[in-house]
């Protein structure tokens, strides 16, 4: 009895978070799961249609393609941001005079709403003569580039723009982590005659595991859920080249009054995210544990 009374405050501490989360996230997910077996259109009564929506999702060409796009994007973005942010963090932790200015400039894009980043970059990367890049090129007497009107380069540019707006922010996470690394490690390494690269390879990089867990997790879930930016930059085009699954759920499903179908797509997607993120977290945490 005393044991229970002692635990009451702990339960009360946890309760608000659990209640909010259950209402905002969990119940709607269960509800979505239920809808995914119906032909609900958002407006009228519905019938159960079994696995029909799931079968349709797997056989609709653009649904499959948008799945593929999302997966490609969700692999490319975390990898490129991490590969660039760690060296950037090391440099920005150095002794440069303009260090703070540089940090501010790199951080700046992340305070802008991602939707507007998409709009700004669209203006820069448009295939039209009046896109900023093309107007510079034609001004210099060169041929204009296809940029966003080529399916492959559209995807590449979408990834680049995402890297642009996330780089500084994630570098900050690593900078913070670097500052916690005790200088003694480096002093010891210097005594042993280690090169700058050796120091990075054997001290800095392994010690960054905690920051990496958070950073990669944020990047991975963020890019799987990406919605605003790809839409504002390319509207999912050309064709379906940069259409993300979240976009398909909205336009093919809810916008078209096919809530049942949208729910099935959502559920396949949720399942994918859950699997990917669980694997990622397991892997990352293990790396952190090795640190101890």
């Amino acid at each position: 009895m005393r044991e229970i009374r002692k635990n009451v405050p702990y339960a009360l501490f946890l309760a608000p978070a659990i209640i909010i989360y259950t209402i905002i996230t969990f119940i709607p997910v269960v509800w979505t799961f239920f809808y995914s077996f119906t032909n609900f259109n958002g407006l009228s009564e519905y019938e159960f249609v079994g696995l029909n929506n799931y079968i349709q999702a797997f056989t609709t060409k653009n649904v499959v393609q948008s799945f593929r796009n999302t997966l490609l994007y969700a692999v490319a973005v975390p990898v490129s941001v991490t590969v660039l942010a760690i060296p950037l963090a090391v440099i920005l932790s150095g002794k440069m005079k303009s260090r703070n200015l540089q940090r501010a400039i790199f951080f700046f894009p992340s305070v802008i709403s991602s939707l507007f980043i998409g709009y700004i970059w669209n203006f820069i990367l448009s295939a039209s003569k009046y896109g900023l890049v093309n107007s510079i090129l034609t001004g210099l007497g060169m041929e204009k580039l296809l940029l966003l009107s080529d399916p492959d380069s559209a995807m590449l540019l979408l990834i680049l723009v995402t890297v642009w707006c996330n780089l500084g922010w994630h570098a900050s996470i690593y900078i913070a982590n670097i500052q916690t690394i005790s200088p003694e490690f480096y002093e010891a390494a210097e005594v042993d005659g280690a090169s700058a690269f050796d120091k990075f390879r054997y001290i800095t990089f392994p010690m960054l595991a905690p920051a990496m867990t958070t950073s990669v997790m944020l990047l991975l879930t963020g890019s799987l859920k990406a919605f605003d930016m790809p839409f504002a930059l390319t509207s999912g085009g050309p064709g379906y080249a940069t259409t993300m699954i979240t976009q398909t759920i909205i336009t093919e499903g809810i916008g078209a009054n096919r809530v049942g179908f949208a729910s099935a797509m959502a559920f396949i997607f949720l399942f994918t995210i859950a699997v990917v993120s669980t694997i990622q977290t397991k892997f990352m945490t293990k790396r952190e544990d090795n640190l101890r």
Binding site: L125, S128, Y130
Partner: peptide, 20 residues
Amino acid sequence: GQDVVGTTDDQRMTEFAMGD
């Protein structure tokens, strides 16, 4: 041309307005 699929409404309006 292929550039059309990477052009927005505003940009083609500009092309027309500027005599391109």
